[in-house]
Simulated scan of single mutants.
Amino acid sequence: MIRTVVVLGVGYVLGAKAGRRRYEQLAGTYRAVTGHPAAKAALDAGRRKIADRVSPDPAMVHLTEIDSETTVIEPEQKS
């Protein structure tokens, strides 16, 4: 019985170390890829595109300047 517990304990410790190493490897690769400026730009563009499609707010369009400090805007009419 003690032998089985020791074998399971050793297996758990070795598996946890291997799993942690693999996790750190994957996390490092993810950070390297998402940290690159080109990848950031692509991710931001994709997020903006998705946000524009699912946004419940209509796009605002500039209509009239009342004076130099005041502008009237209203939702853009989709055709």
Rank of each mutant, 00 (worst) to 15 (best):
G9V: 08
M1L: 15
R20D: 14
I50W: 12
G28N: 06
P58C: 02
R3T: 11
H36D: 08
G28S: 08
V7C: 03
E24S: 08
E69L: 13
S79D: 10
T4Y: 12
T71C: 11
D57T: 12
A51C: 07
T64A: 11
D52G: 02
S55Q: 02
H62Y: 06
E76A: 14
A59I: 03
E69N: 14
G19I: 05
R22A: 13
V6G: 05
V6E: 10
G11Y: 13
A18S: 08
A32T: 12
E65I: 03
A42G: 03
A59R: 07
V72Q: 05
Y12N: 09
A16G: 00
G28I: 00
A18C: 07
V5N: 05
A42F: 11
I66L: 15
K40T: 03
L63K: 14
L43E: 07
G35C: 04
I66N: 05
I66T: 06
V54H: 02
T70H: 11
M60I: 02
E24L: 11
K49R: 12
G19P: 08
T71D: 02
V13M: 12
A41P: 03
A18L: 11
L26D: 06
A27C: 12
Y30I: 12
I73Y: 07
L8Y: 04
P37C: 00
G46N: 15
P75N: 07
Y23Q: 00
